[in-house]
Amino acid sequence: MKTVIYPGTFNPITNGHIDLVERAAKLFDKVVIAIAYSEKKQPMFSLEQRITLCEQALAHLDNIEVCGFSELLVDFARSKNSQFVLRGVRSMKDFEYEIQMADMNRAMSPGFETIFLTPADGLSYISSTLVREIAGMGGDVSNFVPANVLGALQQQLDQ
Rank of each mutant, 00 (worst) to 15 (best):
D29M: 12
R90P: 00
N148Y: 13
E39W: 11
I33M: 07
V32K: 05
T3P: 07
F144C: 12
A152T: 01
K2E: 03
L47Q: 07
I99P: 05
K40V: 08
V131Y: 10
E71H: 06
Q154C: 10
F112H: 07
D140G: 07
K26M: 13
A24L: 14
L73G: 06
S128V: 05
F95P: 01
T14L: 05
M104H: 02
E96C: 11
L47V: 11
Q100V: 12
S46E: 00
T9M: 12
A59L: 05
V145I: 15
F116K: 09
V74Q: 06
A25C: 03
S109Y: 13
E65Y: 05
T9C: 13
L47S: 06
T3Y: 13
S46G: 06
F28I: 12
I13S: 09
L117I: 06
A36E: 12
A107S: 14
I115D: 02
F28P: 01
E39H: 08
N105I: 13
K40S: 06
T52N: 10
E39C: 03
D94N: 03
G68K: 02
I35S: 03
Q154D: 08
L27N: 01
A34L: 02
L61I: 10
M92H: 11
I35A: 04
Q154E: 12
N63I: 00
Q56I: 10
N143E: 11
R78Q: 07
A34Y: 03
Q49C: 01
E55C: 07
Q155W: 14
D29G: 15
I126D: 05
I18G: 07
V21W: 09
R132C: 08
G138P: 10
S128L: 07
I115C: 06
C54Y: 02
R87W: 08
Y97A: 00
M137W: 14
M44K: 10
G122E: 13
M108K: 07
S82I: 06
V145Y: 15
G139I: 04
V74S: 06
A25L: 02
N11T: 00
I5D: 14
